[in-house]
Every structure is written in structure tokens, then in C-alpha cells.
Design a protein around this nucleic acid. Structure first.
Length: 506
RNA sequence: GGGUCGCUAGCUCAGCGGUAGAGCACUCGGCUUUUAACCGAUUGGUCCUGAGUUCGAAUCUCAGGCGACCCA
């Protein structure tokens, strides 16, 4: 409503007329509110303490009653009450008899203000700053959302996240936890001598995952480019170069659908450790995630959407074959042809998609249909079919499989790791098979990256590699049902307002 | 891509074929211990957009927009 805005602009002009800018340059708080609450917890009801303090924050509520007013001021650490007494304010400002009416009429909920004063715990027990002076720091021209109900409109919470953050403590806590998780993870890796090295986001050839990329273009070079869909192939080049422990925690872009578990840009960490295999990476994964959980949640047993999740290592390890057999009764080791596997699947009411053109791919289908969503407690699923995993090393003892695991928690894929494929000849064969699938019409199949293959020919040590989806981990540790709850600014369709072109239809 | 639901005042919502409503916020008046302050008065609308049905549409129908959830 422009009336509300106009009223507030009038107040800003009134401040200027008084010689006070509605947009201050700076302010020097002596404390944050949480410090004061803690330091003066011993102050008794009705008592005052003459310590001079300065606090700054956003006005959240205002209660004016004649010659006394109570405001709630919140800084990032939380709220504190302002006790504004007309008589004592006037005593402190003998040359400005209007100071009380100025602070009560020129401020609104949403303004940033700074105050000086002393401490007082009111008769009702609320620690307050008894205000002796005040200053507008930034005049707000827009009303805050409903102070009691907050922002219920989910769309508005995502589109105007700043409002959501102002009124929703839970949202603020989610992003604090996200930051803590990321910093804990980096510290843990840094302490173990993993080097974080940044690899290119803009690439002439996207690789390292089965996914469709975003396309863009470099003008000066007149070069088509894509945004990365994984960091894998470049981090492996760094291992070839002699860095034995590397990682990168950063943004990945995949041109795919949007859902409660998918955002087109998301954050992953990929970690590579020379001389390690996928068993080592399992230990690393459960230790790292348990460490982060401990730091973020204060323990390793947490609640997610009403279900208790125990992240205390060690976690369950089971092969995909075992899990599928347990869930369906089908032993995929016994099938010698796709037709045989497909018939067996149909006999137990499993869907057999055309695109799943091998026993291995059907095994993955059966897993996704009957097992995945039931893996609530953390579970390492081991030993995937080779045709689904072109960058993983073939299994040391099981033909047709690779040394790969995926980690599932609350039915969601949360991490993915291999004993990396370092044999350049085998790698070329696998990528060429992918290229063939791509030609046959699979837009997610991988391409042959000649420079990557050259790097492998130069020589890569045996290496364990791991990728963890940070957003899904944050969802788990913040009890968030949607990925949009853990991404500050999730991708949304632009709000469509009546377009000029549509008028022509009238 | 399919299905279900939603969109009404700045915010939270009611109204479901017959004058557009409430609480909070805003504005004005009162109030020196409030904390969802209270009491009184006022103000505030492209009922998401467009078309249709109807004497009459926020309400019914169709199309579109945006979103949420479920399914693929």
C-alpha cells in the first residue's frame, strides 16, 4: 500500500528536518543483545544498573502507553526490550522537550535504530535498556509481515527471503547451521591435509556425471561453454599432478527438474584421496558426516520429520544384490540375460522400462523401485553394475560390478563414492560406450574427454573418490522437508505479470 | 509431463450466486510496567489475469499465470 510507504517517507523527511539523517553512516554498539541478556541475568526484578550500554538493531514491536513506551529491539543475536520513560528521557535532553514524542512517532516496526542507555529489569522481569538517547540508523519504508503469524505464504518466503529471515527464527537457524556444517567440513578436511583447489565452472565439455548441462557462451572467444555438472574430472587431474588429497566444496549446475529434493544449482563436496579405495572412503564418509552432525546438532542421534536417525558410526554396509534379493526375492546373480531378469521382475510386479537394456540396469531399477525409499537409517549400498558407473574401477572379485557405494539416509542418495578407475585403457573403453549411448539418444550419457584420458595415461595413483550432496545433508541436519528450505534463494519461475503482448489478444 | 489443492486489504484469514468482511499493521485520540499491550474512532480492495454463463460472479464454467504437495 503506497499510503503506508508515503507515511514512512514523511517520517524520514521529519527526521531530516530535525537534522537527523534517516540513513546513518555508522553506529558503535557496545554489546550485542545476547551478551547483555547473559551478563545481567542476575539483575533482579525492578532493579536498575547504571552501566552505560549502546545497542543497535531492528525494531520489532512497539508498545506506547502515554508517557512510557516499550519497544522490542532485535539484533542478530536476539531481542532486548527498550524501556523509554518520558521523564528521564527529557531530563537527559533538557534542550529537546519533544524527544519522547519523536522516538514514539517517527519510528516504525522494521526500522533499524541505535540507542544508548542503562540497564533495568522491569517489574515483569524483562531485561531492558532504559533509553537515554536514540538514533535512526535506517528508516524502513515497508511494513513487516504479521508479527504473530509471520509469513505463511511459502512462495513469498522463497521470493522474499529477507522477510522470512526477519520473522522466522527457524529459517535463521537453518542457515546458521548450514554455515556451521560447511565450515566444520572444511576444517576437518584441512586438518587432515586435504587441499581445497578450485576447478572451472565454465567448461567446453561437461563431464563427471550423468546429467544435462546448462549451455552458455563466451563472446570474445566465440566459444560455446557449459556450466559444470561435477568437479570429478578436474580434481582427478590434480591427483595426477601429484596432489594426494584434494577436495572442492562448491556449486554444481544440472539442467534438470525442480522438486523438493532438486534445485538446478546445488552444492557438493568432492574428495579424492590417493592410495585409498572405496572401503577407506566409507570410513571417511561416516566419520566426516558424524563429525558435522555432532557440531551442528550436538549429538549423532537426530530426528528427521518425526523419525529418529542414528548417525553414530559405523553404518550398515550391504550390497545392492543383497538388498534387492531381500526386498524382492530375486537373485540378480542368477540371471544370464536381460529377458530372464525382465520376466522375473514382471512376475513380482516390478516395472521394466525399455531404456534399462541390461541385467545390471534392471538391477538398479529393482533397487530404486523396492529398496531405496526404505533405507531410512544410514546405509552404504555397495557394488554397482559396471554399465551404470563409467568412472568407477571394476570390482576386485565380482565380474560385471564396480567398486562403488552410494550412501542412503531417509531414503535419499546423500553420497556417492568409488575406488576410482585409473586404468586409461579401460577408461577409454567405458567412455566410448557412454558416447555410443549418447548417440543412441540418451542426453545424460557421458562424453569422451580426451584431455582427461591423456591425464590418466600420464599416470594417476590408486585413489578413493567421494561426493557428498551438501544440500541434502543440511536438510537432514536441520529437519527441513524441502531443498528450498536450505537454499537461501532457490530457483523460482519469475513472477508473471500482465505482459504487453497479451493485450493484443483482447 | 499427469493429478490434487491454493491465490480476497501491507500480513494472517473468513466469505462460496445478491451492498467486499474480521484480526493485526497504518492514521487519529486516550493511557507511566507493557511484552500478540489495552480502549475508542478512522482509513485501506485490479477478490491472480482473461473470456464465458447469469438480471446479477470473489463465488459457477473454460483458458492462462504463479505456487505447494503427490506421482512419473
Amino acid at each position: 500500500m503506497s499510503d503506508l510507504r508515503e507515511t514512512r517517507l514523511d517520517k524520514a523527511r521529519a527526521l531530516e528536518a530535525l537534522g537527523q539523517s534517516p540513513y546513518a553512516l555508522s553506529f558503535a554498539p557496545s554489546h550485542r543483545t545476547a551478551q547483555l541478556q547473559q551478563a545481567h541475568a542476575d539483575l533482579a526484578k525492578g532493579e536498575e544498573r547504571a552501566e552505560a550500554v549502546a545497542v543497535a538493531g531492528r525494531l520489532m514491536t512497539r508498545r506506547v502507553m502515554g508517557k512510557l513506551a516499550f519497544f522490542t529491539l532485535a539484533d542478530e543475536t536476539g531481542p532486548i526490550q527498550l524501556y523509554i520513560d518520558k521523564a528521564s528521557l527529557e531530563t537527559a535532553h533538557p534542550h529537546n522537550p519533544d524527544i519522547f514524542s519523536q522516538i514514539t512517532t517517527l519510528t516504525d516496526a522494521g526500522d533499524w535504530i541505535g540507542v544508548h542507555g542503562t540497564l533495568k529489569r522491569t517489574d515483569r522481569g524483562e531485561l531492558s535498556v532504559k533509553v537515554s538517547d536514540w538514533q535512526m540508523l535506517s528508516k524502513s519504508l515497508q511494513p513487516l509481515p504479521d508479527k504473530w503469524h509471520g509469513l505463511a505464504d511459502v512462495e513469498k518466503r522463497y521470493r522474499q527471503r529477507y522477510l522470512d529471515l526477519i520473522v522466522s527464527p527457524h529459517t535463521r537457524e537453518t542457515f546458521r547451521r548450514r554455515a556451521l556444517l560447511v565450515s566444520t567440513m572444511r576444517r576437518w578436511l584441512d586438518e587432515r591435509e586435504f587441499l581445497e583447489i578450485e576447478t572451472p565452472v565454465l567448461q567446453s565439455q561437461a563431464g563427471g556425471a550423468d546429467a544435462r548441462p546448462f549451455a552458455t557462451h563466451h563472446n570474445t572467444l566465440d566459444l560455446p561453454l557449459t556450466l559444470r555438472i561435477a568437479t570429478e574430472l578436474h580434481l582427478k587431474r590434480l591427483v595426477v599432478g601429484g596432489f594426494e588429497r584434494v577436495y572442492e566444496l562448491g556449486r554444481i549446475f544440472r539442467n534438470e527438474g525442480i522438486s523438493t529434493r532438486h534445485n538446478p544449482e546445488f552444492t557438493s563436496v568432492e574428495i579424492y584421496q590417493a592410495f585409498a579405495d572405496y572401503h577407506d572412503m566409507m570410513v571417511l564418509t561416516e566419520t566426516l558426516i558424524a563429525t558435522c552432525c555432532q557440531a551442528v546438532c550436538g549429538g549423532t542421534v537426530i530426528e528427521y520429520q518425526g523419525t529418529s536417525i542414528d548417525l553414530t558410526p559405523p553404518w550398515t554396509r550391504a550390497t545392492m544384490h543383497e538388498l534387492v534379493q531381500r526386498a524382492t526375492g530375486l537373485d540378480f546373480n542368477a540371471f544370464s540375460s536381460r529377458a530372464q531378469a525382465a520376466a522375473a521382475m514382471q512376475a513380482v510386479d516390478l516395472v521394466v522400462p525399455e531404456a534399462a537394456d541390461s541385467v545390471g540396469r534392471l538391477l538398479v531399477e529393482a533397487f530404486e523401485q523396492r529398496v531405496e525409499s526404505s533405507l531410512i537409517q544410514p546405509t552404504f549400498v555397495l557394488d554397482y553394475p559396471v554399465e551404470n558407473s563409467p568412472l568407477a574401477r571394476t570390482h576386485r572379485s565380482k565380474p560385471g560390478l564396480v567398486e562403488r557405494f552410494e550412501l542412503f539416509i531417509v531414503g535419499r542418495e546423500t553420497a556417492n563414492a568409488f575406488s576410482e578407475l585409473i586404468d586409461p585403457v579401460d577408461q577409454r573403453r567405458r567412455l566410448e560406450a557412454q558416447q555410443e549411448r549418447r548417440r543412441a539418444g540418451d542426453p545424460e550419457a557421458q562424453t569422451v574427454d580426451e584431455d582427461f584420458l591423456h591425464a590418466l595415461e600420464v599416470g594417476m595413483p590408486p585413489t578413493g573418490g567421494l561426493g557428498i550432496g551438501i544440500d541434502r545433508l543440511v536438510m537432514l541436519l536441520t529437519d527441513s522437508p524441502s531443498i528450498r528450505d536450505v537454499i537461501a534463494f532457490p530457483l523460482l519461475r519469475p513472477e508473471g505479470r500482465a505482459e504487453v503482448g497479451s493485450d493484443a489478444m483482447g
